[in-house]
């Protein structure tokens, strides 16, 4: 199981790198961002919270940097990220806990949908390469792949919510406080616009990669052999070509999920959707470093877990790595 061990190693090292970036940047960056943070926090938080901030960012602490580092790692692993400056007296962990589910649901569902539909579209555009639909879908996919997520979000918001009034302009549920089924309906209704934005922009990438993979596999000898053997077209299309063409999509998942998460963060900012992206925006605007650090850590962790799941699925799809 060398493959799985390797993936676990990458998982751990990446998480360690993310934690170390969080530790080093505020300390090493020119302009003393850590001291500026403490200065800002003065008078806004209690003396005790201020002291723990000083410890966390190494200001006025006469301690060896290595001791600081070890203690920092310990705090991170135990989930002790201190208080948020923006949402004081709330702790960072509390804020993340209440915002995370929104993002997980939004990105999780749209990523799976975009992957499935994009892959199917990619298969059919490559299979019927000369058809009218496939000639059109290529430039359209290329264009949508280059559209900024947040810009499309703004256009949807303007046209569909502001002008036509079909969907709510922002937020995740109605402010009138619906209960039960009505609340679920309201949540789904509010999710449609942000979800469609992410879906539309993420779709193009999957279509393009799947199309190229398909075309590469189509010229392999075993495909000609399958034709010669008289197998039906749809068996060749799905069981022979698509099955082999989909493999690189799994290995490319790491970067794709990174793009989707990054784009989704901006979409949340536009729609004031109360997820991690919106929280990250607040932390950046308020230079709330404790919150920002923790968000970076958790976003990386989420991407790592999603990627790990893709890697493990790959083991089932491609028998060659099961050695």
């Amino acid at each position: 199981m060398k493959y799985i061990l390797r993936k676990i190693l990458i998982f751990i090292v990446t998480l360690w790198v993310a934690m170390t970036i969080n530790f080093i940047l505020p300390r090493m960056m020119p302009g003393n961002p850590a001291e500026a943070l403490i200065a800002r926090a003065h008078g806004r938080v209690s003396a005790q919270a201020l002291h723990s901030l000083e410890v966390a960012f190494g200001v006025n602490v006469h301690q060896n940097i290595f001791v600081q580092y070890i203690e920092y790692l310990e705090r991170t692993i135990t989930g002790n990220f201190g208080v948020s400056i923006t949402y004081y007296p709330s702790t960072v962990m509390y804020e993340i806990e209440i915002h995370m589910p929104w993002t997980l649901a939004l990105i999780g569902i749209t990523t799976v949908l975009a992957f499935v539909f994009g892959t199917i579209l990619g298969i059919s555009t490559a299979w019927k390469r000369e058809s009218l639909a496939s000639t059109f879908s290529l430039p359209v996919s290329i264009f949508f792949n280059s559209v900024p997520y947040f810009w499309l979000a703004l256009l949807f918001q303007y046209l569909l919510a502001f002008i036509l009034g079909w969907f709510p302009i922002s937020g995740a549920f109605s402010a009138t406080g619906p209960q039960g089924i009505a609340l679920i309906g309201s949540i789904l209704y509010h999710a449609i616009l942000p979800a469609s934005t992410i879906f539309v922009t993420a779709l193009g990438g999957w279509v393009l990669t799947m199309r190229n993979n398909m075309i590469s596999v189509l010229s392999e000898d075993f495909v000609s052999f399958a034709y010669a053997g008289g197998l039906p077209d749809n068996v060749i299309e799905y069981n022979y070509v698509a099955r082999n063409a989909i493999l690189p999509n799994f290995t490319g998942f790491a970067m794709a999920i990174g793009f989707v998460v990054s784009g989704a963060l901006l979409v949340e900012m536009v729609f004031s959707y109360p997820g991690i992206g919106y929280l990250l925006y607040q932390s950046v605007v308020n230079l709330d470093y404790p919150l920002m650090q923790a968000l970076f850590f958790f976003i990386t962790m989420t991407v790592l877990i999603a990627n790990f799941i893709a890697d493990m699925t790959y083991v089932f799809v491609d028998p060659r790595v099961r050695v």
Binding site: M29, P33, I257, L304
Partner: peptide, 21 residues
């Protein structure tokens, strides 16, 4: 390479840029 491939780009950029003087 694998580590930098997985760390999501925009959040890393945001963190870097937020500390920049």
């Amino acid at each position: 390479t694998n580590v930098f491939l997985i760390i999501p780009g925009l959040p890393l950029m945001i963190v870097l840029a937020a500390y920049m003087p």
